[in-house]
Design a protein around this nucleic acid. Sequence first.
DNA 1: TCCTTATTGAAAATAGTTTCCATTTTCATT
DNA 2: AATGAAAATGGAAACTATTTTCAATAAGGA
Lengths: 163, 163
Amino acid sequence: MPRRWMAGPPWLYERLHGCGYRYTLPREAVLQVLTQTPEHLSAEDIYFLVHARYPQIGLTTVYRTLDLLVRMGIVVKFDFGDGRARFELAAHSGGKSHHHHLICTLCGRVIDYSDFLEKEKELLQTTQKGLSEKYNFEITDHLIQFYGKCQQCKNAEKQAERR
Amino acid sequence: MPRRWMAGPPWLYERLHGCGYRYTLPREAVLQVLTQTPEHLSAEDIYFLVHARYPQIGLTTVYRTLDLLVRMGIVVKFDFGDGRARFELAAHSGGKSHHHHLICTLCGRVIDYSDFLEKEKELLQTTQKGLSEKYNFEITDHLIQFYGKCQQCKNAEKQAERR
DNA sequence: TCCTTATTGAAAATAGTTTCCATTTTCATT
DNA sequence: AATGAAAATGGAAACTATTTTCAATAAGGA
C-alpha cells in the first residue's frame, strides 16, 4: 500500500518489491531528484538536493541508493573523467531519451546530443555480432563519448590570443 | 648527449628536450616498462615493475611521469571503470596499433580487438562533422568501449548452473 | 666545473567512495 | 493494530587512488 509521502514515480514501489527490496524514503527522494533534474548529477549533488528537503538522509545512503538503482537498471552511471561518477535516469525509466555526451576537456562541460545515432546503431550491431562470434564475448553495454573543446572555451581562447 | 644508462626508446631524449623537459632515469624506466609490457597497466603495476629494477624510484614520480607522457601524447590513459587509470603506449610511439577494448563486467578482464574499425571510422567522421557544425564543438578525441561477459565468465556461470 | 632550475622522493593531504556497526524502519505475520 | 525478523539507515572511520608539499638532488647549459 503506497505511503502518504509517496511522491516519486508510482512504479518505484512495485519495482523495488518485485526485486525483494523495501520502499523507503531515501530511495524515493533520490529517484525524485533524478526525475526532476535532467542534468548529470554527482552523488554529492544528489545528496545536497535530497538533503535540502530531507536533512536526515545521509550521504552514505545516497551512495547506497544510487548503487541499488544502477544495479536495477533504473539509473545509469557515467564517468566523464573528472574523478566522480555522474548519474542520470535511464531512458526507459523516464529519463532523457537515448543520447551521447560531448565532454569539453577544458571546462568539463557536458553536452548531450542525440543526432547521428543511426550510424552508431549500425556500428553496434556489426561489432556486437562480430565480437560475440570471434571472442565469444557477450556485449551487454557500450560507452561512446567524444572529447574536445566547446564553443565557450574556443571563444575564450580567441579572446586570450587577441591580447 | 645520450646517457650510458639509456636503454629505452632512442627518441625519448630528443622528444623530452624538444619540449623543454629533462631526460631522467625515472622517465626512461617508466617508458621502458610500457614498451616491454603490452598490457593495460595501472600506475601501481608500473611502479612495481619499475621499482623491481630501480628501487629508488618512488610511486609519486611514476604518477608524475605518466602524467607527463600522457600530456606529450606518448602514452594513453584509459579508464575501465574499476577506479584506477590504466596506461598504454600510444600506437605512434611504438605501442599496439589502434584497437578498442572489450571489458568484462564480471571479472574485469580486458580484451583488445582491432576488427570492425572501418565502421567506427565512418561513425567518427559523420559525427565529428555534424557536431562541430551543430554545436561548434571541436572533437579531439573519442572513447568507444564495449562491456559484457567474457567467455570464461560465461563458462563459469554454466558450471554453476549445473550444480 | 658551476649554477640555475627542473625533478625527485617521502610524507602528508585530498577526494570520492565504501565499510562498520549500533540504531531505526519496513512489512509479512500475527 | 501489535510483533518481530530482516533490511535499511546514518555517522564515523576506513579505504583507495591520486595529488600536493617541501626539502634534497640531479640535469644540462654556461
